[in-house]
Design a protein around this nucleic acid. Sequence first.
DNA 1: TCCCGAAGTTCGATTTAAATG
DNA 2: GCATTTAAATCGAACTTCGGG
Lengths: 357, 357
Amino acid sequence: MRQRDPNKTTVTIRDVAKTSGFSASTVSIVLNNAPLARYIPPQTKARIQKAAKTLGYHPNVFAKSLRSKRNHTVGVMVFDITDPYCTPILRGIENALYQASYLPILADAHNERGRFERYLEMLLERRIEGLIVLANWLYLDINLLADIERGKIPTVIIGRELESDAISSVIVDDEAGAYSGLSHLYGLGHRKIAFVRGPKALASSKARWRGIQRFAKDTGLELDPRRIVDLPDQRNPNVGVDDGFRMTEELLKRKRPFTALMAYDDMTAFGTLRALAKAGIKVPDHCSVVGFDDINPSQLFVPALTTVRQPMEAMGAAAVVIANDAITATAENRTVGAIHRKLAAELVIRESTRAVP
Amino acid sequence: MRQRDPNKTTVTIRDVAKTSGFSASTVSIVLNNAPLARYIPPQTKARIQKAAKTLGYHPNVFAKSLRSKRNHTVGVMVFDITDPYCTPILRGIENALYQASYLPILADAHNERGRFERYLEMLLERRIEGLIVLANWLYLDINLLADIERGKIPTVIIGRELESDAISSVIVDDEAGAYSGLSHLYGLGHRKIAFVRGPKALASSKARWRGIQRFAKDTGLELDPRRIVDLPDQRNPNVGVDDGFRMTEELLKRKRPFTALMAYDDMTAFGTLRALAKAGIKVPDHCSVVGFDDINPSQLFVPALTTVRQPMEAMGAAAVVIANDAITATAENRTVGAIHRKLAAELVIRESTRAVP
DNA sequence: TCCCGAAGTTCGATTTAAATG
DNA sequence: GCATTTAAATCGAACTTCGGG
C-alpha cells in the first residue's frame, strides 16, 4: 500500500496539484508554459502559480532530465588547473556558460592520461550535453577521441587543432602573434636577438617559429642558430620556468651577445629573467625580453613583462558558443560540422623591452 | 501501443535483461552487487555482466538519482577564480573529490552578491549533495546562509569562520603564521620593521595583526605607528597589487627608515616590491620583504618572495573530508555538528629576506 | 526453510489521448 | 466540434514482495 512520508521535506508537483485543486498534468502544463497552456484560462494559471510559490515548489531535475534527456550541464576538462594559463580561459568559459544557464562540471586530468580517461568516462555517464577540453599541454591522440565520438557529445578543444578535423577547436593565431612580437623588437632597433623556442612536439612551437621566420624573411633579419635554443619536450608546465632558466644560461655560455630575447612563453620568460639577473644583465637596460601568453603574473613582475597576449577569456567564450550551437543542433536533430576558430593575439608592451641604445 | 525506437542509441537495463535472458530486476541486483546478489549463482552473474559489457551498458544517472536521491555531485563556489589564491585550493578540492568519486560543479560568483545567490539557487535545484564555498574575500552574511540551511545541504567554508557556527569551516592559523613571519625577520636582526596591514574588515587582517602584537610583546620589539599603514577596504583582489604599491609609497614618504617590511599578503608584497624598486631600494640588500599566502607567482619573482605559506591544497582536501563525512551522515540519517579546522601556516624562506648588515 | 528469479511498485515530471460539459 | 481538464503511459533504474522448486 502506498504510504506517504508525512514529514517529507521535498514538495512535488502533486502537492501543488492538491493545494491548487487541479491535476498534476495541468500544473505541469501551466508551469512549463507548454503549447496546451493556451487553452487554460488565466484564472487557473494564477491559482496554480500561486500555489507553487507558496509551497516553494522546485521541479526535480532528475525527473525532468529522465524524460527530456537534457540536463544543462557541460563538462570542462583541463589538464592542470594550477597552470596560470588555465584560469582566464576557465573564467571565459564559466561566464559564457552562466549567460546560457549552463553549469560546468570541472575535471582536472593532472596531465595524466589515465586520469583523463577516467574523468571522460565519468562525464559521459552523467550525460553531459557538451564537452570543452582545454588542451594546453598534453598530447591528445586518437584513442580518446573515439570515446568522445562514440558518445556523440558536442566537443570543443581549446588551444589545439586536431588532425582528425571532426572536432571543433579554438586556437590563437600563434604565427601572427610571434610575428608581431619580433616586429616590436625589430622596431626598437634590436638585431642581435636570441630565441628560446618551445618544445618541438607542440604545434604552437612550430607555428610561432613560422611567424619568426616569416618576419626574418620579410625584413632580411638574420636568425643566427647560435642564438637559438629549444626547450626540451616535457609535460609539466610549471617546470617551464626552470627550463627557461637553464636554456638562457646555455645561451649566455655561448658568448654570442644579444640585445633582446624572445621566449616561447611567459613561464619561460620568467626563467630567462632570473638567469639574466643572476648574470648581472639588467632588463630592459642591457637586454629586452618578450614573452607569449600574458598570464596573470606577467603584469606583476618587476619589470612587467612585454608579451604577446592570448585572448584567453574570449577563447573560452568562443568555445562555449560553438558548443552551445552544436547542442541545440543536436537537440533539434540537425547535424553541424566541426567549427575551427582562430583568434588574434595582441602585443602588450610593458617594461621589459626598450630601444637599443 | 508501446513503440520502441528501433534506431535508438541508449542501451537500458531492459536490453541487458533481454540479451542475457534474465529479468531487469536480476540485472539490477547483479550489476549493483546488492544484498540479494549473494543468492545468485556466479554463472548467472557472469552471463549478465558479459551482456552488459558487450552492449556497452551505462546506467542512466537520472533514473538512478531519481530513486536514490543521490548524485555524487558537490557544488564548489568560488568568489573569483582568477585569484591565484583560489587555484591551489581548487586543486586540493578536486583531487580529494576525485578519490571519493565525486564530481564538482563549479560556480564563480565574480565577487557579486547577486551572482552568488543565483548560483546558489541553481546548485540547490540540482540537488548537490554538498557545498564547498571558497570565501577568500567577499563578506558572507546571514541571509544567504539561511538558504543553505533551508536546503539542509552539508556546507563547508574555506578561508573564513562564520559567526553562526552552524556551518563547518577550514581556515589557516593566521595569527601563528604572522608570528613566525615576524620572528624570521627579527631573527635576521631587523628591528625597524614596517607593516602594510590588511583591510580592517577582514577577519584574517585582525588575526595576523594579533600575531604581530603577540610577538612584539614576547620580545619587546617596538611597533612604531609611523611604520604602519592599512590597506583600504575593497573587494577586488587583483587591485591588491596597486594598493600595496601605493601604501608602500606612502610609507616611504614618511621618512621613517625601515630595514624590513611585512605585507598583508603576497599580492600586496608584489606592489611593495615595485614601489621599492622604483625608489631605488634593492631587495633584499637594502630592505627585506615578507608576504603571506605563497601564491604561485611568489616563487617565480626575482627575488623570489619569502612568505608565510598557506597549505592551500590541504585546506581544500580537508574541506572535502568534512563535507564527505557530513554527506554520509545525512545519508544514514545521523546528524553531525559543524566542524572547524584550523591548519598551520608554514614559513617559506626564499630570496627577499636577508640579515641586516 | 532455503535458494533463485520475476513481477510489480516507486521515484517526479512530461505528454498523449481521452473525457467532460 | 470546442474549450478545459485529467487519467494513464512513459522515461530507466531500484527495491519490495511474491512464487516455484
